[in-house]
Computed example of a mutant assay.
Amino acid sequence: MSISRHNTGVSAALGALASQVHPVFMLPPVAASWFGAILVGEFTLLPGILFSATVFFGVYTAHVKDGYVDFYLRGEDDDHPMTRRGCHLCIAGATLGFVLCTVALVGLVDATVLVFTIPGWMLGYFHAPQLDMNPVTTTLGYPLGIALSILGGYYVQTGVLTATPLAFAGVLVFVLAGIKIIDDAKDYDYDRSIDKRTVSVTLGPDAAFRLAYALIGAGLFFVVAGSITGVFPPFAAVAAVPFALVVVLARATPPRHATMMLVRGSYVFLALLVVAVAFRPLSGIPLPDIGVFGPYTYLVTEVLFGTVAAVVLFRAGRDAIRRTVRTIAVVYPVAYVWDWYTLEVGVFEIPLRTGVELIGIPLEEHIFMVVVPAFVLAIHETLGSDERPPSTETETE
């Protein structure tokens, strides 16, 4: 019996086999395994190749199994390039390749590598039709696979795990989980019709989108925090900037387009993290010293953030501006008394200021009590006023 559903012969069979290699979803796990190796510094090729091969075979198994379930069992797809027997043979062959590479790694490193290989294969094989029916497992399957790829890629080189690979793996779990929620949202209507409990179906589209962007935002924050604490190289914080811009732009687009933007943005994000780890730009370079403005330093920072707040508020509209002004007017007296008291009892000092005082506190503190709530309320009003794109698109892949 032929492997290909549409043609016979060797070329048709090879074409059917190649059709299950999906670079968009297969490249990141394989690249993540090498990212784990790069975290080590100097790494050995053989264990890296063997581990990346186990990742490849695991993801290939997942793609074949998922296509088989969607076409032959669920009738979700309109076509599939492989016969039933072809799917079974592919799964068996990929599993055999996975087992051989895993056994080689056990002999080369130790049996602990099974912790990073077997769960990855199981996540792929049982994704459909078991794990993809639950909101937690359908969302975390792919992110956890990426995390295992990073951790395993590091472990096969060193035989140990440290905080750095664990932190990187955790960041990507947050970011990719958010992207997966948005990706699943494009099939909301269909998933709901077959009782497939994705996060969008379980929580509703609006809550799902809020959770997704909260997870992505948390992941980016942890990158910046890791750079500040020294867990990540300093350039890792720079890597978060372009991806954060993509996230802002994607938020205003429908789920399908948002997914495309976020997936591609995550590739850039991962590539820049590789640059941060492999080449460590900015390492050893001191932070810019804004103290060069002398007594005007505090004032300059307030002007900067105040300008941003004004621009964002202007974009949010007149109603947002009125609400912000009213809120600041109510909060200001409380903030004034609090600020005066903390300065009076010596809670903090402000050395880089003009020295000008107004009704008992520095001029800069008066500005601070306007700029900070204005900045916060500007973001709040923007998030509240932006119309989220349609979350229900009857699209299937």
Rank of each mutant, 00 (worst) to 15 (best):
L161N: 01
S385F: 12
V274F: 14
V337L: 08
F232M: 14
E364H: 03
S11D: 11
L287S: 15
E302Y: 02
P242H: 04
A92C: 03
L148H: 03
P362F: 11
P135M: 00
P119R: 06
P281T: 04
V275W: 11
A378F: 13
Y188S: 01
F25G: 06
F56Y: 14
V370K: 10
S283N: 11
H88R: 15
I216E: 15
V337Q: 03
V247Y: 10
T394G: 10
V241E: 02
G93S: 14
V64S: 02
V331W: 13
L313D: 03
F221Q: 00
F35K: 08
C101W: 07
S283I: 12
P233E: 07
N7R: 14
I367Y: 14
F269D: 03
S200W: 03
F51V: 04
S385L: 13
A16Q: 13
V292N: 13
A310R: 00
V201I: 02
F375I: 00
V347E: 12
A225F: 04
A240M: 01
R323Y: 12
A37E: 14
I3G: 14
A329L: 13
S200G: 09
A169N: 05
R5Y: 08
E76D: 10
L140K: 04
V59W: 15
A214K: 00
L14Q: 04
T198I: 05
S283H: 14
P29I: 08
D110Q: 01
P288T: 09
V311G: 07
L45N: 02
T297F: 07
V115P: 09
Y188L: 11
P351H: 12
A32W: 08
T138Q: 09
R315L: 12
A252H: 12
V238F: 03
P295S: 09
G219T: 10
I38D: 03
P165A: 01
W34I: 01
D319K: 11
I328K: 09
H88V: 12
F232N: 09
T327G: 02
Y341C: 04
T44N: 15
G360F: 07
L343C: 06
T253K: 09
R84A: 13
V274N: 09
M260K: 15
S193I: 00
A271E: 05
Y188W: 15
R192C: 02
L166D: 00
A111G: 14
R74D: 11
T253P: 01
N134F: 00
A16C: 15
V160P: 03
G153I: 01
R280C: 06
V55N: 10
F35I: 06
L100E: 00
V103H: 05
L39D: 06
G346N: 13
I328M: 11
L352S: 15
F43G: 02
R5P: 05
F174Y: 09
T8D: 10
V311Q: 00
Y68Q: 00
H257D: 10
S2G: 07
P390R: 04
Y298L: 04
L151V: 00
